[in-house]
């Protein structure tokens, strides 16, 4: 079993939140960008200076005991002032429970507890065509990823170097047109967006995996798939990727109590070299995993 032994894990190194910082940040901007979907901008330069695509922060309403715990939210984008200094970061969330309902009531100027960056971020993803597959709010980690890999923006350490890609396509599935968030931003960044809705109100009527199939049937050459969304969608995408012999990583939205590696809540069944499986913590070993390693 490797799940809790340190200092290293076979393959990817275990992240121990060593660059994490905790502060009470000020909300700079908070706005609705789609049905039940908000973008929250926080003033937290230290975290924003360190975070890279695929990592997350924990957010908590200060001194609030119900909800008690923080919530993990993926980096959407970092924010700079006109002088080019990093100021804060954006997260995008959908109102689904007690915490997000309360969060939606927070206004500009209000304090919010935030700690991060947490998790490992995306792996190198060496390819020509990056295929992003998102279900619902699962699109949020992909905006910064696409901008970084298209060479438009640098995240984290200024000397950080990541492989460039030539093309990014986002297959984006939502229930209905009014849940689409940030499509124009993705398109402005040169990302091809394929929209799917369950009700057919816009784009392709059906599942996002159908769009993915259509793209792969045109060409599966030098592609890499990254997927984020509900688990059935992740599993279906992983199956399609295997069929087309395309590498696939999934970013998991596993419930977490701490996000740091303390609680052992967010465990995922991961295949082991001996043919068995073991639970690994999504917060310190993920949240991005090679899809072939997950026991669905």
């Amino acid at each position: 079993m490797q799940s809790s032994s340190f200092p290293t894990d076979s393959g990817r190194s275990v992240f121990y939140a060593d660059k994490a910082h905790m502060e009470t940040a000020r909300i700079l901007d908070h706005r609705s960008i789609a049905e039940q979907t908000y973008r929250l901008r926080m003033e937290c330069p230290t975290i924003a200076d360190r975070i890279v695509p695929g990592q997350f922060v924990m957010l908590r309403i200060p001194a609030c005991n119900d909800p008690l715990l923080g919530r993990p939210l993926a980096l959407y984008d970092t924010v700079f002032d006109p002088a080019g200094r990093v100021v804060g970061l954006d997260i995008v969330y959908c109102v689904i429970g007690k915490m997000t309902r309360l969060l939606a009531g927070q206004r500009s100027g209000d304090p919010i507890d935030v700690w991060g960056p947490l998790g490992n971020g995306f792996p190198p993803l060496v390819c020509r065509h990056l295929l992003l597959v998102a279900g619902g709010i699962g699109q949020t980690p992909f905006y910064s990823l696409a901008k970084e890999r298209l060479g438009q923006k640098v995240y984290g350490n200024r000397s950080r170097s990541v492989p460039r890609v030539e093309k990014v396509t986002l297959c984006y599935g939502v229930r209905s047109a009014n849940f689409l968030a940030g499509v124009a931003e993705f398109q402005d960044a040169g990302i091809q967006v394929e929209i799917c809705t369950e009700d057919g109100s816009i784009g392709h009527r059906g599942l996002v995996t159908e769009s993915l199939q259509a793209i792969l049937s045109e060409s599966n050459e030098d592609c890499h798939i990254v997927c984020c969304g509900p688990e059935p969608m992740l599993e279906a995408t992983a199956r399609i990727a295997a069929t087309w012999n395309v590498p696939c990583d999934v970013s998991l939205e596993t419930p977490m109590a701490c996000g740091i590696g303390l609680c052992f809540s967010c465990v995922v069944k991961i295949r082991q070299p001996d043919g068995g499986w073991d639970y690994q913590r999504a917060c310190v070993h993920g949240p991005v995993f090679d899809a072939t390693k997950i026991v669905w």
Partner: peptide
């Protein structure tokens, strides 16, 4: 899993000595 559930001002866990 699920190994933890948040409740009012509390946390229920059943990690199971992993």
């Amino acid at each position: 899993p699920l190994r933890t559930v948040e409740t009012a001002a509390g946390l229920l866990n059943s990690i199971g000595l992993d």
